[in-house]
């Protein structure tokens, strides 16, 4: 690594979150990370809980009984909402990061229209889809 001159001035983790003057995709990026971490944590627990199936009906029923109640219902709804967001935003990211939906390179003429603007309708579309999925799925949890 090159020898560093001067005083370090990296923004640190708060630079991930941005805020203030940053754009829409910056928030999607932060939320994608947060939901990803939450889903991984849930997934590891989920493997543990559902593995009780191997020990037969009683073990399964008691494991399911341990995760019942309004608190778990709300928690499960949050996991489902996180899944809905992470899944549809993931579709957008997979498309965009493989170079689709961002437009072709063009001669930049002011005011510039960037790849971020090109994929904006897609970003808004998938967020609407995520909201619909979270609401439809949520009805099942909150009934």
């Amino acid at each position: 690594m090159i020898e560093n001159k001067g005083r370090p001035n990296r923004l640190g983790v708060k630079g991930w979150l941005g805020g203030g003057r940053w754009g829409f995709e910056r928030y999607l990026y932060a939320l994608h990370r947060l939901t990803g971490l939450a889903l991984l944590a849930y997934f590891v627990l989920h493997i543990g809980v559902t593995s009780s199936r191997a020990f037969g009906e009683n073990a399964w029923t008691s494991a399911m009984g341990a995760v019942k109640g309004p608190l778990f219902s709300v928690g499960e709804f949050l996991v489902f909402a996180a899944f809905a967001f992470h899944a549809v935003n993931g579709i957008r990211l997979a498309l965009v990061e493989l170079g689709f939906a961002i437009g072709q390179p063009i001669e930049p003429v002011y005011p510039y229209r960037t790849s971020v603007d090109e994929q904006r309708p897609l970003a808004i579309g998938v967020m609407i889809l995520a909201a619909i999925l979270a609401i439809v799925g949520g009805i099942g949890f909150l009934k």
């Binding site: 754009g23 002011y110 960037t114 971020v116």
Partner: peptide, 14 residues
């Protein structure tokens, strides 16, 4: 790069 899109938004030369 996770496409937060900031670089393109701030680039003064497009």
């Amino acid at each position: 790069c996770h496409f937060a899109g900031e670089c393109s938004r701030v680039c003064p030369k497009g």
